[in-house]
Amino acid sequence: MKLDFTKYTNGLIPAIIQDNETKNIFMLGYMNQEALNKTLETKKVTFFSRSKNRLWTKGEESGNFLNLISIQNDCDEDTLLIKVNPVGPTCHTGTDTCWQEKNEQDYGFISKLETIIEDRKNNSNSEKSYVASLFEKGINKIAQKVGEEAVEVVIEAKDDNDNLFLNESADLLFHYLILLQAKGFKLDNVVKFLKERTK
């Protein structure tokens, strides 16, 4: 790994710390060559502390280590992206990140859709909201709807109309997300099961 430690003051380069699974950013620290070497050697992220003026392994006092997964340098060879598996919260204040954010998995639009479904479930009138009306009819109706959509996906999979297949697939996924919430779960609960199966 080629790095330019001379570009910044005191031979320190920024190190962005990212969760290997969720991709959330935990913190920004600084490393010199010695800190990088120790990180690679121990597999625990070590910085050069500007306040303590010495090497500092994250978690050396709290036990909240950042276990190293990978290190990448950027295109200018003066910044590091370090992917980690965290042990406990990262921030000294006790929060998951130094921006007071929870380190939760975000599935982008799917997570946004789950939030919309939850809002419709809790706050909408069943006469105005299709989602609210399904929840009002109960688990049997929701499960039945998922079954119907699954059959329609199978039917369209046998034909050559990709648009209809994707349309029915979207319907199936949407209703499956509703079923998960009717059972008190979200997509992340299913993903955790899938992850366990790959171990």
Rank of each mutant, 00 (worst) to 15 (best):
P89Y: 14
C91A: 13
N53F: 02
C91E: 08
T90S: 15
T93G: 02
G29I: 06
V87G: 00
E60M: 01
K43P: 01
D78A: 06
L68H: 12
L81A: 13
M27I: 12
T79A: 15
G63F: 11
F26Y: 15
W56N: 03
W99C: 09
T97M: 11
N73E: 13
S49K: 07
N24E: 15
G29Y: 08
R50L: 01
L36C: 05
T97Y: 10
E60Q: 11
L66C: 10
N24S: 11
N37I: 04
K23T: 14
N85F: 09
I71T: 14
S49H: 01
Q33H: 12
F26T: 08
N73I: 02
N32Q: 07
P89A: 14
T95C: 12
F48L: 08
N24W: 10
N67D: 05
L80W: 04
L55P: 04
D78P: 01
F47S: 11
N53M: 12
C98D: 08
M31N: 07
E34N: 12
K83E: 13
T39Y: 03
L80V: 06
T90L: 00
L36I: 00
E34V: 03
W99R: 04
T90Y: 00
N85V: 10
D74P: 06
T97S: 13
T39G: 04
I82A: 07
N24G: 06
F47G: 03
G94Q: 06
D78I: 04
W56S: 07
L28Q: 10
G94W: 11
K38T: 10
L68Q: 13
S70L: 04
N64L: 09
K44A: 01
E34D: 14
I71S: 12
N73K: 14
E34T: 13
S70F: 01
D74C: 04
C98K: 06
R50F: 02
T90R: 10
S62I: 09
K52D: 07
I82Y: 01
S51M: 09
C75R: 12
L68F: 08
E60H: 09
L80G: 08
G59I: 12
T79S: 15
V87T: 15
N73L: 00
S62G: 05
N73T: 15
